[in-house]
């Protein structure tokens, strides 16, 4: 279990993480979803002991990461965002090194290395130098290094960035298997589909702040089953638009910028003619309309007013 309470991390004037709190349980995947620079990696860094929190408290399996660093780190497995492998060494030698840090030795060490290579599909390439591996194979070995010691808590920092679709699916299966085996998995990503597929619970972060958290269903409910309408064209002021949309039931401005407008509305396909008529009445000129069904992405846009991949 990971318990994060009012975590804050500052770098000089920059507040990278601002009062983030959440709890991730064993046997489930907890997702941290947010755009680049939202504070996900810093949060992982504070949990893993790589960074010292400025304020707040983090416990891993009940051990405070600041005051009981070695004990908390002993329960962690970390799969960093970037590859962390020795390219001159073989897959076995890499695993041997990382596993030895957790006190594994002898037959147990050999067994775990073999198992890790097997689940990641690298057993037949175990003795080859890593520099000969493909990108996907390196990603899988990177994952194997994080699980070789069977950690109680597994931190995965965007492990599928830049990975081909086949390897991505393989890695996602490995993550699910870890959670199914009882491991507490904390998974950061900025891929909506990945979060929806993998995570049992989610926290959405932006600008260092946690803006929503819950299960996928709980988060979808926050959107109120409303569709998102993205309109492009020429629009009057936000106040005029708001006044015009007051006559359309359940319609709400999510984002209004020059040349674009995002509106949340229940059953938007049915309300679209009324909505366009209301906008035309206040002088708007709509050139293009796109409708999106409720999803994490629409929730993110609703909560932050921007696209996740911005």
């Amino acid at each position: 279990m990971i318990e994060v309470e009012e975590l804050r991390k500052e770098y000089g004037d920059l507040v990278a993480v601002d009062g983030v709190s959440f709890t991730a349980q064993g046997g489930a995947v907890f997702g941290l979803l947010g755009p680049n620079g939202a504070g996900k990696t810093t949060t992982i860094g504070c949990i893993s002991g790589l960074r010292q929190p400025t304020a707040g408290r983090v416990r891993v399996m009940g051990h405070d990461v600041v005051f009981e660093g070695p004990a908390s780190r002993a329960r962690l497995g970390v799969v960093p965002q970037d590859l962390a492998l020795y390219e001159e060494l073989s897959a076995t030698e890499n695993l041997l090194y990382w596993a030895s840090a957790y006190g594994l030795r002898g037959a147990a060490l050999k067994k775990r290395i073999t198992e890790s290579l097997e689940v990641t599909g690298l057993l037949d390439r175990a003795r080859e130098p890593v520099k000969r591996f493909s990108g996907g194979m390196k990603r899988r070995l990177n994952f194997a290094c994080g699980i070789v010691h069977e950690p109680q808590v597994l931190l995965l920092d965007e492990p599928t960035v830049g990975v081909d679709p086949q390897s991505r699916v393989r890695l996602q299966e490995l993550v699910k298997a870890q959670a199914a085996a009882g491991t507490c998995v904390l998974y950061t990503t900025h891929y909506m589909e990945e979060a929806e597929t993998l995570c049992d619970r989610l926290a959405i972060v932006d600008h260092g702040k946690l803006i929503a958290q819950g299960s996928l269903n709980e988060l979808r409910a926050m959107l109120g089953e409303r569709d998102l309408l993205r309109l492009s064209g020429r629009f009057p002021s936000e106040a005029q638009i708001a006044a015009a949309l007051a006559g359309v039931e359940g319609a709400e401005i999510v984002q209004a910028e020059e040349g674009s407008l995002i509106v949340a509305a229940p059953q938007a396909s049915r309300e679209l003619p009324a909505l366009l008529a209301a906008l035309t009445r206040v002088g708007a000129e709509v050139w293009e309309t796109t409708m999106t069904r409720p999803s994490l992405e629409t929730l993110f846009i609703k909560l932050t007013g921007k696209e996740l991949r911005e």
Partner: peptide
């Protein structure tokens, strides 16, 4: 550059080890 330093510092022996 390899990223192994960051990972090593998350190990139980930490920076001293």
């Amino acid at each position: 550059r390899l990223g192994t330093l960051r990972r090593a510092l998350t190990l139980p022996p930490g920076v001293g080890g």
